[in-house]
Design a protein around this nucleic acid. Sequence first.
DNA 1: TTCCAATGGTCAATCACTTTGACGATCGGA
DNA 2: TCCGATCGTCAAAGTGATTGACCATTGGAA
Lengths: 154, 154
Amino acid sequence: MSTASDPPLARLFAMAYRTLIDDLHAALRRRGWADVRPAFGFVLLAARDQPTTVTGLASLMGTTKQAASKLVDTMVAAGYVERVDHDADGRQRPVALTSRGQALLATVESIYGELEQGWADVLGAARVERLRRDLVRVLLDRHGGELPPVRPTW
Amino acid sequence: MSTASDPPLARLFAMAYRTLIDDLHAALRRRGWADVRPAFGFVLLAARDQPTTVTGLASLMGTTKQAASKLVDTMVAAGYVERVDHDADGRQRPVALTSRGQALLATVESIYGELEQGWADVLGAARVERLRRDLVRVLLDRHGGELPPVRPTW
DNA sequence: TTCCAATGGTCAATCACTTTGACGATCGGA
DNA sequence: TCCGATCGTCAAAGTGATTGACCATTGGAA
């Protein structure tokens, strides 16, 4: 039985996610990144190491290709990513980070680091890392060895 | 710097929340509760001990009164809550659980218990409770001693 | 070599759900 | 007895997703 001081984990996760995302975007706005939408992070991260595709993004985020395509269009308009040509496959229009996108990604990761440091100041670094490890462990167990997709809007 | 096996906490929370909510609603459907929307839980819980108000719900969920009002309408139509009259204040139309709503709430809490037991089977009960305690602690610290609102749709 | 099912991607229409804005009814202190 | 503040609703507009149809390209099978 959950009570006001002992809520179900699901609700705590929702609060924690919301808190971190709100703090992230507040920090981004303070640093001059005013047009960043919550969902952008998934695309930035997916395209970090190598260009990704619309279909790959859709699979990663658990949405339709159309929704992923619109998100990419928005981010292209904002200058964070660009569509390039695939060498071998003419159907693919890979999504690559622009230098502006790389700068945003670096800023986001830096802010995440600061926010998690704030958590460590309250809980202690060891407990924060245990938290991360435990979550990864349960999620891997629950999804057959892979982290599940995250849908930006619910 | 986050990597595929070491993601930022924010993303892990999103995955964990999504996982529990998906599992909850799958379990509800298996038990014959087919018309339950994810947001219903907040209303059920808010009205559990005593009737709540549309304005109170809006504040609790961080949405507008209009959005809360429509959600209540939906739940009234589904038979989970009902509008009653306030004894002293003619403006208020308190939202109270029906017996069907109470039954749903009991089922939800039971399923949450089972799901968290599943987590305990992977992590151990002590680590699950530490997880809950740590989350509550950080959230209280970050929001001035109160748990923050949770918006059902993001 | 030719065919064709599968794949990457887009366009258009629709849907679900929210917000903004305006408003009526009630309350409660000055 | 006012009148600002609060509870709640109606209506319009906006955001962002899905469904469905469709085209171009690919790559293996006949």
